[in-house]
């Protein structure tokens, strides 16, 4: 231990103590700095149109790419679809995650808790693309779902390649994230508060609605933010389960960068996605307050 202290004195002498906090923050600041640097480069790129005679960005600075995004009805539809998809994903994910987390936290049976944890983590270890591929197999025209419907005399129906399929895939993908964020919030609610509510005449449903949900609000908001931003920026589910006609903004960005080689337009779309995501987070925080997220702000 002495040797460790001596080494520490050499590497980080006592006179540097006031800067310890900054030193600990430095790796995170560097990462964010790199991200901001990239954003500046993208902003610069977004102000140049593609010269199709040389396939190089034009010399002049222009807002033409932003005008294209604003005036093109396709991008309007794609942005609307992305926002709607994210909102629906948040709603359905939280709807499923809350009871799941609650049972996982409150159950007295360790076997049930283990089963729930394993069920939660098993798909968590599988990548998004593999999971989407699994859904393609399960929900396909000749997949398990249609085979089951066939047993009760229902003709095969198209379950894939539409907007509901994309939202379903997103909910399935996001559920573990939401449960993992909700579980600590629910654990922090003392059982005694529910007992107290019951002793005052509240049934389980009333207790859940008036005690558990309000007290779990930081977890719900945090999970909603994570699920919402991840769904808003998702690429794989719309690409694989949407059948090519249910693109989200990330798919449109991909198209510009990699299909038409128009990096300026892709950068403009990417920056608009960043703005959209930031506005989404800002609205949530302004409504519920930073304190709701446990950040010590105004409650």
């Amino acid at each position: 231990m002495d040797a460790l202290n001596r080494t520490l004195d050499i590497v980080w002498p006592a006179r540097m103590m006031p800067y310890t906090g900054w030193a600990l923050l430095m790796p995170a600041l560097l990462l964010v700095g790199l991200l901001v640097l990239g954003l500046f480069q993208m902003a610069d790129s977004s102000l140049h149109t593609l010269d199709r005679s040389t396939f190089l960005p034009s010399e002049n600075y222009t807002l033409e790419n932003y005008r294209t995004v604003v005036e093109n009805a396709t991008y309007g539809k794609i942005i609307w679809r992305s926002v709607l998809g994210a909102v629906l994903t948040v709603f359905f994910t939280l709807l499923l995650a809350l009871p799941y987390s609650y049972i996982m936290v409150r159950t007295s049976s360790s076997a049930v808790r283990k089963v729930l944890l394993v069920t939660l983590f098993l798909p968590f270890f599988i990548g998004q693309v593999v999971r989407a591929y699994g859904l393609l197999i399960i929900l396909g025209t000749t997949g398990v779902a249609n085979n089951a419907l066939g047993l009760v005399g229902v003709e095969p129906i198209r379950l894939l390649f539409n907007f509901p399929a994309v939202v379903f895939g997103l909910v399935q993908y996001m559920l573990p994230f939401a449960v993992l964020m909700l579980a600590p919030a629910l654990t922090a609610i003392p059982r005694e508060t529910e007992t107290a509510a019951a002793s005052l005449g509240a049934n389980w449903l009333q207790s859940f609605r008036h005690v558990v949900i309000p007290m779990a609000k930081p977890g719900l908001i945090g999970a909603g933010l994570v699920v919402g931003t991840l769904a808003l920026t998702d690429f794989a589910m719309p690409a694989m389960l949407g059948g090519g006609s249910q693109d989200f903004i990330a798919n449109a960005i991909y198209d510009q960068f990699f299909r038409t080689a128009d990096q300026g337009l892709g950068a403009a779309l990417a920056l608009m996605l960043v703005v959209l995501g930031s506005v989404f987070v800002a609205i949530v925080i302004s409504i519920f307050g930073a304190g709701t997220l446990g950040m010590g702000g105004k409650k």
């Binding site: 093109n72 009805a73 396709t74 693109d247 299909r259 038409t260």
Partner: peptide, 17 residues
């Protein structure tokens, strides 16, 4: 080469509708 991007965009516009 000159027009492909526009064709792709128009096709997308119709199909994403």
């Amino acid at each position: 080469v000159q027009n492909e991007s526009d064709w792709f965009a128009k096709f997308k516009e119709i199909m994403q509708g």
